[in-house]
Deep mutational scan, measured.
Amino acid sequence: GSSGLPPGWQSYLSPQGRRYYVNTTTNETTWERPSSS
């Protein structure tokens, strides 16, 4: 899909309704949208 996220990243919603991002390669999580640069 065209999520616009860098490879390996997925976006999720927290129980509070906030969006966060997870790097499935490194298990890093961040509130900031990852850049593909």
Rank of each mutant, 00 (worst) to 15 (best):
G1P: 12
G1W: 04
G1S: 14
G1E: 15
G1Q: 13
G1K: 09
G1Y: 05
G1R: 11
G1N: 13
S2F: 08
S2N: 14
S2L: 11
S2D: 14
S2T: 12
S2A: 12
S2P: 12
S2K: 11
S2V: 14
S2R: 10
S2E: 15
S3M: 14
S3G: 13
S3D: 15
S3V: 14
S3E: 15
S3P: 11
S3K: 10
S3W: 14
S3R: 12
G4Q: 12
G4E: 12
G4Y: 09
G4F: 09
G4I: 09
G4A: 13
G4D: 14
L5D: 08
L5M: 05
L5R: 01
L5V: 04
L5C: 05
L5Q: 03
L5H: 03
L5P: 04
L5T: 04
L5Y: 03
P6F: 03
P6Y: 04
P6R: 03
P6Q: 04
P6V: 04
P6I: 04
P6D: 04
P6A: 05
P6M: 04
P6N: 02
P6H: 03
P6T: 03
P6W: 04
P7I: 07
P7L: 08
P7T: 07
P7V: 08
P7C: 06
P7S: 08
P7H: 09
P7W: 07
P7R: 07
P7K: 07
P7G: 05
G8Q: 05
G8V: 03
G8T: 04
G8H: 07
G8E: 07
G8K: 03
G8S: 04
G8P: 10
G8N: 07
G8M: 05
G8A: 04
W9P: 00
W9F: 03
W9A: 00
W9R: 00
W9N: 01
W9T: 01
W9Q: 00
W9H: 00
Q10G: 05
Q10R: 14
Q10H: 12
Q10L: 15
Q10M: 14
Q10S: 09
Q10E: 15
Q10A: 11
Q10P: 01
Q10T: 14
S11E: 15
S11P: 03
S11W: 07
S11L: 06
S11N: 02
S11K: 04
S11D: 07
S11A: 11
S11G: 08
S11Y: 05
S11V: 10
Y12E: 05
Y12N: 06
Y12S: 05
Y12F: 15
Y12L: 10
Y12V: 10
Y12R: 12
L13D: 07
L13M: 09
L13E: 07
L13P: 04
L13S: 04
L13F: 07
L13A: 03
L13I: 11
L13H: 05
S14A: 04
S14M: 02
S14Y: 02
S14K: 01
S14P: 01
S14D: 15
S14F: 00
P15V: 07
P15N: 07
P15H: 06
P15I: 06
P15R: 07
P15D: 09
P15E: 10
Q16E: 15
Q16K: 09
Q16W: 06
Q16I: 08
Q16R: 08
Q16V: 08
Q16N: 15
G17M: 03
G17R: 01
G17T: 01
G17N: 05
G17S: 02
G17F: 04
G17A: 02
G17V: 00
G17Y: 02
G17E: 02
R18K: 14
R18N: 11
R18Q: 13
R18L: 10
R18V: 15
R18A: 08
R18S: 08
R18Y: 08
R18P: 03
R18M: 09
R18H: 10
R19L: 14
R19E: 13
R19P: 13
R19D: 05
R19H: 07
R19M: 14
R19I: 15
R19S: 05
R19N: 06
Y20T: 02
Y20P: 00
Y20W: 06
Y20S: 00
Y20D: 01
Y20L: 06
Y20H: 02
Y20K: 02
Y21L: 00
Y21G: 00
Y21W: 12
Y21I: 00
Y21H: 00
Y21V: 00
Y21P: 01
Y21N: 00
Y21D: 00
V22E: 03
V22H: 09
V22R: 06
V22K: 07
V22N: 01
V22T: 06
V22A: 04
V22S: 03
N23K: 03
N23Y: 05
N23D: 06
N23V: 00
N23I: 00
N23F: 05
N23T: 00
N23R: 01
N23S: 04
N23P: 00
N23M: 01
T24Y: 08
T24G: 06
T24H: 09
T24A: 09
T24M: 11
T24P: 08
T24L: 12
T24E: 10
T25H: 12
T25Q: 13
T25D: 12
T25A: 13
T25S: 12
T25F: 15
T25Y: 14
T25L: 15
T26G: 01
T26V: 02
T26Y: 02
T26P: 00
T26N: 05
T26W: 02
T26R: 02
T26A: 02
T26D: 03
N27L: 12
N27G: 15
N27H: 13
N27K: 11
N27Q: 11
N27W: 10
N27I: 02
E28N: 04
E28Q: 06
E28F: 05
E28G: 02
E28H: 04
E28S: 02
E28D: 06
E28W: 03
E28C: 10
E28R: 03
E28P: 00
E28T: 05
T29H: 14
T29M: 15
T29Y: 13
T29E: 09
T29L: 14
T29W: 15
T29D: 02
T29A: 11
T29I: 15
T29G: 06
T30Y: 08
T30W: 07
T30K: 07
T30Q: 13
T30P: 00
T30A: 07
W31L: 08
W31G: 02
W31D: 06
W31Q: 06
W31P: 04
W31A: 06
W31E: 06
E32L: 08
E32S: 07
E32Q: 10
E32F: 11
E32W: 09
E32M: 07
E32D: 10
E32G: 04
E32Y: 11
R33A: 11
R33K: 13
R33M: 09
R33L: 11
R33Y: 14
R33P: 13
R33D: 09
R33C: 15
P34E: 01
P34S: 01
P34Y: 01
P34L: 02
P34R: 00
P34K: 01
P34W: 01
P34D: 01
P34I: 02
P34H: 02
P34C: 05
P34T: 01
P34F: 01
S35D: 13
S35P: 12
S35A: 13
S35L: 12
S35R: 07
S35W: 08
S35G: 14
S35M: 13
S36K: 10
S36Y: 14
S36R: 09
S36L: 14
S36A: 14
S36P: 10
S36H: 14
S36E: 14
S36F: 14
S36Q: 10
S36N: 11
S37L: 12
S37A: 13
S37T: 13
S37F: 10
S37N: 12
S37E: 14
S37P: 13
S37M: 12
